[in-house]
Design a protein around this nucleic acid. Structure first.
Lengths: 205, 205
DNA sequence: TAGATTGTTAATCGATTAACAATC
DNA sequence: TAGATTGTTAATCGATTAACAATC
C-alpha cells in the first residue's frame, strides 16, 4: 500500500502531541485532532496505514500508541549521524539539543578547513573530509547531515553515497540527483523565505 | 484561481535554475524540466497560473522570465527581517550569507539573555525582547524568524503577531495557532530527521 | 510553409474527508 | 444494552499529467 509521505510528518506530530498528554491513558482520534489540528478522519487513516492500534468505542492507549509510533518512525533506537560542514549552520546543528533528545547523536563531524581539523566542538572531533569514506563505512553510519557551501554540496553528497550512506538531510541550496535507494531530503531556507514573501507580495493566502 | 503552495516552491527552484543558464537567451519548458526534474507540463502549468510569459514555438525569454518570477515571489525588492533568539541556530541564521544574497536582511535581532543585550553580532545589535513590539511597528517589519527554545515559542509568536508582523519562519519544534491573515511556516528539524529514519527503518521508499 | 512549443482543457492520479458497519 | 469510537470503504477534492489546438 502506498503511504503518502505527508502522513509520516503527521505521525511525528501525533507522537509529540501524545507526549503532552499527562492526565489520561487513552486518547480518541478526535482528541488527537484537537491537539494537532488535523482532522480525526486523517488521524485514523494515518494510523490505519500501519496497523490496528485502537479499540472501537474506547480509543487508543497512549502507552501503546507512543511505542508503535516510535517503531514506525524508527526512533525506538538511537542513530549515529555524520555531519559534513562545521561552519555556522553545521555548528548550530551540532549544538542543537533537540537532536540528542530525539535519539540522534551527531557523533562524527567533517570539514575541509585545515584550521578546524582535530579541534573539538561540542565534544566531537572535527575530521578531514578525506576520512569520511572510511568512517562512514567502518562505523556503518546511515544518516548524514550536509551543511557545506553550495559549491561543495555535489561532491560531498557523491562521496557520502559512494561510502554507503543511506539517508541525507541537505541544507545546501543545491539539488543533487541521487539513486532511488538513497533518501535525500532538502531543506532550502531561502526557498522557505520566498514562500513568505510570495504571501506578503500578493497580500493573502 | 487556487494556486497550489507547492507551485510556489517550484517557482523558487525554476528561478534558481534560470540563473545557471549562461549560453542562451530563451528556454523551453522542456529545458527547465531537464534542469529541475519537474515535468515540462508542470513547468508550463505553474507559470500559467501567473500569466503568459512565453511565446509558442519559441519558449520563454530568460531575461523576462527571471524578472516575472522575482515579481511573483516578491523578491524584486529587499526585505528587512527580525530575528528572535540568538542562540546557536539564531546566530547561524544571522551569519547565513544566502539570505542577504536573496535580498533578505536580518536587520534586527532580539534575545532575552541579559549578557547578550547590546552586543553586536554580524554587525547587528542584539536588543531585549521587550523592544520588539516598538521596533516591529516603527520599522514596519513584515517578516520574523523565530529561533527560540520550544518553551518560549508561543509567547514570542503571540508578541510578534500583536506587534503587526505578517509572516513568520519558525524553527521552534512547537506549532502555534495563528490568525488566517498571518503566514506561519514551521521548520521542524527533528521531524525531518524522522522522515529519514522512517525510510531507513522500513528499508525502501 | 513546416517545425516547435506555448497555454489550456480534459483525463488521471493520489490524498483527504465523509460515512458507517463493526465492535468494544 | 446504549453510547462511543475504531477501521475501512466510498465520495470528494485537489494536484499532476497528457493531449492538442493555437500560434509563433
Amino acid at each position: 500500500m502506498k503511504i503518502p509521505s505527508s502522513s509520516i510528518s503527521r505521525i511525528s506530530l501525533y507522537y509529540r502531541a501524545l507526549l503532552s498528554v499527562k492526565e489520561a491513558s487513552v486518547v480518541s482520534s478526535e482528541e488527537v485532532s484537537l491537539l494537532t489540528g488535523f482532522s480525526a478522519a486523517q488521524v485514523r487513516k494515518d494510523l490505519a496505514y500501519f496497523g490496528q492500534f485502537g479499540t472501537p468505542g474506547r480509543g487508543y492507549s497512549i502507552e501503546i500508541l507512543k511505542k508503535e509510533l516510535k517503531k514506525i518512525l524508527g526512533t525506538d533506537r538511537e542513530w549515529d549521524v555524520a555531519l559534513v560542514g562545521t561552519g555556522n549552520l553545521g555548528s548550530a546543528l551540532l549544538a542543537y539539543k533537540g537532536f540528542k533528545h530525539q535519539g540522534f547523536n551527531i557523533k562524527y563531524a567533517f570539514d575541509n578547513d585545515k584550521k578546524k581539523i582535530n579541534k573539538l566542538r561540542q565534544g566531537v572531533r572535527i575530521r578531514p573530509i578525506d576520512d569520511l569514506p572510511q568512517i562512514v563505512r567502518d562505523k556503518k553510519i546511515s544518516i548524514a547531515i550536509v551543511a557545506v557551501p553550495q559549491e561543495s554540496a555535489k561532491d560531498v553528497i557523491d562521496k557520502l553515497i559512494d561510502s554507503g550512506i543511506k539517508a541525507i538531510l541537505n541544507f545546501a541550496p543545491k539539488r543533487s540527483k541521487v539513486p532511488e535507494t538513497i533518501e535525500l531530503l532538502n531543506i532550502d531556507l531561502s526557498m522557505e523565505l520566498e514562500r513568505l514573501t510570495y504571501f506578503l507580495q500578493r497580500g493573502q493566502k
